[in-house]
Amino acid sequence: MDVVLFLIFAFIAVVAAINVVVQTHPIASAVSLIGVMGSLAILYLLLGAEFIAVAQVIVYAGAVMVLFIFVIMLLNAGAEVKRGRSLLVQLLGAPLLIALLGLLAYFVQRIFPRNVTVHFGGFTGGSAQAIGRALFTTYLLPFEVISLLILIAILGAIVLGRKELD
């Protein structure tokens, strides 16, 4: 059951991720990316990270990607114009990527023997309560400091987006 669930959503995630990379139109890539994020959210549930799964949907799929789609719509970005790419990229791109993937998979398989397995309900420490407790004790400092980051993001977007400088 868990294996089937994993295989289905891993497959969706990989296909959608490939789609992000090969589609020429930004909006098609964006929709595929939402697909990746959605299937990752399901996999998070499998890993017992219910809060993160929901946060993934709210933050990534519901806010970040909406911004992307919004900008694509606003700029009316069309399909990518194909240029003559350098011969090197054309010849080496795909083989290099496949080699890199193979290497990564090899590393991961070698480092992690199959003795640790995942099944639904195997870890239940990812509830909102557990996250909140850790956030306000052990991770109090990063939590407070990261609020500064959000302030910077707001300020930065305003600085760059305002009509006039003075």
Binding site: L141, V145, I146, I152, A153, G156, V159, L165
Partner: peptide, 22 residues
């Protein structure tokens, strides 16, 4: 993680500063 957050605070404000004269 703290290093990462500090790095991002520094970087994101630098991105904006680099494009300040928009």
């Amino acid at each position: 993680i703290m290093i990462f957050i500090g790095l991002e605070i520094s970087s994101i404000s630098s991105y904006v500063l680099a494009g300040y004269l928009r």
